[in-house]
Amino acid sequence: MDTLRIFTQPAMFAGRTILFRTNATEMVRRIREYFPAIEAGSSSDIAAEISLTADDQPNSQLEDAPWFRGRGYFAFARFTRSDRFWFNLRTRSVLGHFPRALADDRQRWHKDIFPALMGVLAAAIDVVPVHAACLVRDGRGVLLNGRSGAGKSTLTITLAKRGYSLLSDEWTYLSDNGAIEASGLPTLVKLLPDAVRFFPELSEYRQAESLNGEIAYEVDPERCFGVQRAFKCNVDCVVLLDRAKDPGCTITPVCGSQAAAQLIGELEPLEPPLDTYFERQTAIVSRLKTTPTLRLSFNDHPTTVAQLLDHTLSNRGYR
């Protein structure tokens, strides 16, 4: 690691170019292995700049202590007791300082830090994080939206095991690049402890406390389930998930405005001066009004639900 030399590394996030600057060669590697490379023909405009400085801190403490605060254009994030990440969302810049030992912690960057940095930055670069899974089949994207506990991640993995490519199991990033585009990050998939009933592969993994305090399995889906990943697609269909009281599974076509309204209702409202960002986010999601939408109400084994949904998507030409 070289404290004098500064490396610059561009990377793609949701169709935007993010320019990283760092003094740590390890961080260049982390960035390259996590973010998609710049695509040929993509805009050379820099959407945001992130400076990451690894420094010599005596007695650095790397135990977990995630803490987030924000006000006005500014935000602050901390993941251990020895790191600090500052955001100026007006200038779309991030400044991070952390001990050298943290630069070596690949899992922490992949699991917590990179996703959180992108989540905080998103609004400032016209990207909308939505609480939805996303799968891709034959180049067509299916967005699955449902409240926590609806069985979204379990259904998503079941569909991925049927041949869909997994873009995201929990957070999907929408942007308007002519069409509404969905992007994902190579995050771990989080499954609650009872998912082991459907996925015996999980028994080989340990449950752990996730960033929001939930006890869950957090696994690499490619390694654990052998599924394929995708990182970008257009949104061709939205599926709204409802947990039914009675056993069974029904799928009903509904107006796309229901999908838009539900997703907008779940967006984090942003106060002034960030309200203009929020208006732009709302406008992006509103464009899903014209997207074919299904309501899936289910209380059945995930394999049965996935089979029915797959057939419906196929029959309707949504995948």
Binding site: A75, D112, P115, G119, V120, P129, S148, E266, E268
Partner: peptide
Amino acid sequence: MNTSNDRDASS
């Protein structure tokens, strides 16, 4: 603003 990695659907 919440971080996307650490929030529920509710605000």
